[in-house]
Amino acid sequence: TKIIYHMDEEETPYLVKLPVAPERVTLADFKNVLSNRPVHAYKFFFKSMDQDFGVVKEEIFDDNAKLPCFNGRVVSWL
């Protein structure tokens, strides 16, 4: 699974690849690859589809939650 993530106000996003199927990747999986960053200091928002509003940034805080996936990749903002 490819996860593209944006940090603070930085213009260029980062990319990490996880050896987990897109439909199975969790917030804990993502946090594990960010071990060099203080993950407890961040809120995690993900590109998600809402039936009422369309594409939104959804906050996910449960480490066991599966991450929303679009075209085989996850897009996140920290």
Rank of each mutant, 00 (worst) to 15 (best):
S76L: 06
F70P: 04
F53V: 12
I60A: 02
A41T: 10
A21E: 11
Y5K: 01
V25Q: 02
I60Q: 06
T26S: 05
R37D: 05
L34A: 00
H40V: 08
A28Q: 10
A41E: 14
N36Y: 09
V75H: 09
V25N: 04
A21Q: 07
G54F: 05
F45W: 11
V55A: 12
A41I: 06
P68R: 02
K47S: 10
A65N: 03
I3V: 08
A65T: 11
N64T: 13
H6M: 05
V39E: 07
V56E: 15
E10C: 13
D62K: 07
L27D: 00
Y5V: 08
V16W: 03
K43H: 09
E59T: 00
P19I: 00
F53I: 10
F44R: 04
P19V: 03
E10V: 11
V75Q: 12
D29S: 01
M49Y: 14
A21M: 06
K47D: 10
N32K: 14
L18F: 01
F44A: 02
D62L: 08
S35M: 12
G72E: 02
D29R: 00
V33K: 12
E9G: 13
L18T: 08
V39L: 09
T1Y: 05
L27K: 01
V74N: 03
D50E: 09
N64L: 04
D62Q: 09
V75G: 02
F61Q: 14
S48T: 14
G72P: 02
F45P: 06
F53H: 12
N36D: 10
P68N: 03
R24H: 10
F70W: 09
P13M: 11
N36S: 11
R37E: 11
I60E: 01
I60R: 03
E11Y: 04
V55T: 08
V20W: 03
P19Y: 09
P38A: 11
Y5P: 00
V74R: 04
P19D: 14
T12C: 09
E59A: 06
K43P: 00
P19Q: 11
L15K: 09
V20P: 04
C69I: 14
T1A: 01
V39S: 07
E9C: 11
W77F: 09
L67M: 01
V55G: 09
